[in-house]
Amino acid sequence: MIMSTVLAPSPHVRSSVTIETAMYGVIIALLPGALVGAYYFGLNALKVMTISILACLAFEAMVLKIRGMDMSPLKDGSAVLTGLLLAMNLPSNIPWWMIVMGAIVAIGIGKQVYGGLGYNPFNPALVARVFLLISFPVAMTSWPVPKPLSFSLDTITGATPLGAMKTSLMMEGNVGAAANMNLVDPLIGNMGGSLGEIGALALALGGIYLLVRKIITWHIPVSFLATVFGMTGIYWLINPELYAPPTFHLVTGGLMLGAFFMATDYVTSPVTGKGMVIFGIGCGVLTVFIRLFGGYPEGVSFAILLMNAATPIIDRYTRPRVFGYPTRKEARA
């Protein structure tokens, strides 16, 4: 009998879940949020998404070529996801070349410089967003006013609810009307902001899809959202003049996008459930402090990046007790 068998190591059967399952799963989950962005910001939103995704793919290909590697990572979905996430973090009227610069930073400095997918310490899309925010503060904070199904490329800009609140705090000394707005608008996406900042409901829907498909676990989004809700709730109870209600904080800004899609990035978040909860709480605390006391109206991006930096140390101190070793209580006894 002629045979050419493979001497592969066990196990010989594997689950069908691959990197692609996870990456394309997250992309599918982002679609409702992206559609809301397209609905309110029209062609501009589609333009930003297209440029961002294509630029990320192009730079990924370029860097792989420079590194002398094969092009297979292009198909794993990670560059497309980075492109889409970056777009979701940008205002719809941002100049095209800024998007391209963002893509270079995301793929080049955020990811490939460390060795590609799996080795990057920081979420690539957030590295790019923060780079653009610091480099081009005006362009990155002039938010178009939503205009349903608009095919015009001209836009009027206005403030985000969080921005309006911050301005009101500085000018009037109180949170103003924005903080006590009707929550239906931010829920459905009818507010100023980046493509993925609006439409809390659509984003949460995508998040639930990720949970149901077990692409992410509850640990990070629940601990992140609960921390923001709890902390802002306490401040609001103490002084509703100076602090907006927790529901307002939950549905505005990039919180839903951050909690479900950015903080849960496998590569840059802790690996154990316990570590993820600590990470989520850390993200929440930092977000609240930046929103309430920082110079920027929104703090989700900075919070996640800072916690990305803390991930190795969280992992170090949340190692599970190995089977057959004494529990901490037993060790003390």
Binding site: G116, L117, G118, Y119, T272, G273, R319, V322
Partner: peptide, 27 residues
């Protein structure tokens, strides 16, 4: 009849930790 494998870098998803019966960090 067996899925072709393509070994890549660890993406730190943590699945291996949650299934490890010895509570190790296989990744």
């Amino acid at each position: 009849e067996l899925r072709t494998l393509r070994q890549r870098a660890c993406i730190r998803c943590g699945s291996c930790i949650s299934v490890c019966p010895a509570s190790l960090l296989p990744h």
